[in-house]
Write a protein that binds this DNA or RNA. Sequence first.
DNA 1: GACTATACGGAACGATGGTTCCGTTTGTCA
DNA 2: TGACAAACGGAACCATCGTTCCGTATAGTC
Lengths: 196, 196
Amino acid sequence: MVGGDEVTEETGRPLRADALRNRTRVLEAAEAVFAAEGLSVPVDVIAEKAGVGVGTLYRHFPTKEKLFEAILVARITEITEVARARLNVGDAGAAFFGFLEYLVGEAVLKRDLIMALADAGVEFEVAVAPVKEEMGDAVAALLRAAQDAGAVRADVEPEVVMSLIGATCMAAERPDMAVCSQAMVRIVCDGLKVSR
Amino acid sequence: MVGGDEVTEETGRPLRADALRNRTRVLEAAEAVFAAEGLSVPVDVIAEKAGVGVGTLYRHFPTKEKLFEAILVARITEITEVARARLNVGDAGAAFFGFLEYLVGEAVLKRDLIMALADAGVEFEVAVAPVKEEMGDAVAALLRAAQDAGAVRADVEPEVVMSLIGATCMAAERPDMAVCSQAMVRIVCDGLKVSR
DNA sequence: GACTATACGGAACGATGGTTCCGTTTGTCA
DNA sequence: TGACAAACGGAACCATCGTTCCGTATAGTC
């Protein structure tokens, strides 16, 4: 899911077995809790869910923000891969619109995803910037292909698409709007189609 | 703007002159500060901007949330009036789409407006529910007129429109997305138009 | 099995921010 | 102008939450 075999920051030595296990637990707990509750959950909650003391959590991640960043990077990478997988397979229009639907569907399940699309660039450190840019490129490629295929109007910028989807995801975060998410995506997609 | 001549909660006596003046100042300051910074500003900031101690602020509003509610109600009422004014004057389609543009334009300037459209119903007390419902009715009327005029597709529900605009406003709150807000509205509006 | 570096847990700390309390000030009315 | 209720200011209070510290436990190694 996130991270492979890690080594301590200072010394290049491999992690002790229990340390590695706890690191994984923390990441998994944080992923679940952030997804369910959003960024504002206290770290204690994450630590408890991981069956670990807060001290242990902080041994692995210097700050709550860094912990979130680790998950964020994983999430964005995941999205990037989905976008790339959809490129050059079959109908470009269907691939593009299907991708948008996928994104919003994910956002309903994983509330922290919204941050990946919206907040990330503004508030976080250098670690997320590169992966976010990669995602942007992948989405832009998907968009361009759909435009070349004549499925999407030529005058929309990638940023606008990202913003629209970010907006829809943010709305999908609210329980009362989540029920509308499918309908919202449909309308946005219709707006993106070439006008005849 | 907000509130007329008020009386104290317990005794029915009219407010003292300085009290009334301070109440107004607090409301104006809070309106400005919430609009500029969002809901998370410390109350001290509001009090300072109003040229008043925090104690005074709490004399007039039992809690920060109630203060926000007062402003929220005013904002929603404002929107409702705009929606009503647009009803039955000229082209129903133009009235509807113009209204959507107006909303998003406002949201860029008044960041707390987003709450009026998104958060309000979920988190706040009984005071906002009725005015929010009124706004919903006004928007629904505007929508129906546009649909009857053949300008908007018949299969969209008022809730979906509200959610879409709420989403766009939420995005408009982010500085980096705000520049896209016009383009976003245009696409959403195109998606709402009847497909030919 | 003993030794040591590594890791653990969770109490304690400090910052932030909403709310309360109370001594002082001020408007109002006679 | 004097008296009193009403209102004011802001220090102090308390809860929350991120982060640190240190005494204890344990994995890895000889």
